[in-house]
Amino acid sequence: MDNIKVSVIVPVFNAGEYIGKTIDSIINQDFDSYEIIVVDDGSTDGSLEIIKKTLENSQIPNRIIHQKNSGVSVARNNAIDVSKGEYIVFVDADDYITSNHISTLYNGKSDFSLTLVVKKDGEKLTDPKPYTQKSIKTEDFIKMELNMQIVFNFFQIMYRASIIKENNIRFTPGIVYGEDIEFAHKALSYGDEIIINNEKTYYYVQHPESAIKTTEYKRFKIVEIFEGLADFYNKNNKPELANLITTSRIPKAIFGNMNFFFHNGYDFNEVMSNMKEQDLLTKLSKYEGDSKFKLKIRLFLLNPKIYYKMWMKLKNSID
């Protein structure tokens, strides 16, 4: 097959329990002219053998890359470098997609397209909120995300490959949290329009072990990602987006993650110590937006301990 319309990229590290189902869901698409690129990032649990066995009889063009353990960013970048599709789609190794995922995303015209993500936690499934527009200018989409008026995951988007490759957009190796947000923002900034489809086609599977990993203080590292994006937007003559990051997205990320730690039983003094060490209180004070949210931030900054006690009291009364 010479004309590859879509490249599906799957990074894998010790996902032997899930990767067979993931690849099966990618193989069983109601779409022609796509390839599968799986990158094994030095797995030690037999993932590579499962990948080979699952793909060996597939009629879908595929490529398996085996690399020494270098992280998910390097794995995705290596796959981008060898991809042949006009568009690129990402699927994580423990997630799965419906049989119409690619056909729903692909239109062959727009720079980007998007479908809905369902989060699966055991038998529990979320019901994602549909978007109200059928298409959005990418800059407007970015502004809405920076104001947290919308929520999206990088893997629910189909990307025009030429935008990624010609602008040398890659995942930054070594980032422990938020490398996907950085990639999506940069890619979207070079495009014109994103087509929206409210079909639920991507299932994001959550596991107890992954929840534990994401509760570490590395969540605050997202601030560094957005600071880097602010620099990126300034250098690309988009000062309004850079300002939104400083006055909206960063403060909201700090406040949201702080409350996440409180909700999950982290020690108040430990949380505050981490916030002061990273100068997050100063960055939190720069919020310029909704008056109610601004009031919450002011109350917290005025007396963090009292805010914490009141927050915990209200939390416990709801629980």
Rank of each mutant, 00 (worst) to 15 (best):
V82P: 05
A75R: 11
I88T: 07
G122E: 07
F90D: 05
D92N: 06
I80E: 01
D92E: 11
L114D: 01
L114F: 00
V91M: 06
S99K: 14
K119D: 15
I88H: 01
V72E: 15
S113V: 00
K129I: 08
A75T: 05
H101G: 03
P130R: 14
V89P: 01
G108W: 11
T98V: 13
L116S: 07
D121N: 14
D121I: 12
I80V: 08
S83M: 07
R76E: 05
N107S: 10
V117A: 04
L105A: 09
V74N: 15
G71F: 10
V82S: 13
G122N: 11
V72N: 15
L105E: 07
D127L: 15
K129R: 14
F112Q: 10
Y96W: 06
V117L: 02
V89L: 02
Y106Q: 08
G122R: 12
V82H: 13
K109F: 05
Y96E: 01
D111G: 09
R76H: 03
L114V: 14
D121K: 06
S83G: 02
N77F: 13
L114W: 10
D94P: 02
T115Q: 12
N100L: 10
F112G: 12
D92R: 00
L114E: 09
V89K: 00
D111K: 02
S103L: 06
G85V: 04
V91G: 11
F90V: 09
Y96S: 03
V72P: 11
D127G: 07
N107I: 02
T126A: 13
S99C: 09
L114K: 15
V117F: 06
K124S: 12
V72R: 06
T98E: 10
S103N: 05
V89W: 02
R76A: 00
L114S: 06
D94I: 09
V82C: 14
P130E: 09
A93I: 12
P128L: 00
P130V: 10
T126W: 11
K119G: 02
I97D: 05
I97M: 12
I97A: 07
K119C: 05
N100Y: 03
V89S: 04
Y106H: 01
A93R: 05
D111V: 03
T104P: 07
D81N: 14
Y87N: 05
A93V: 14
Y87M: 07
L116M: 01
K109D: 04
L116V: 00
D95I: 00
D92Y: 00
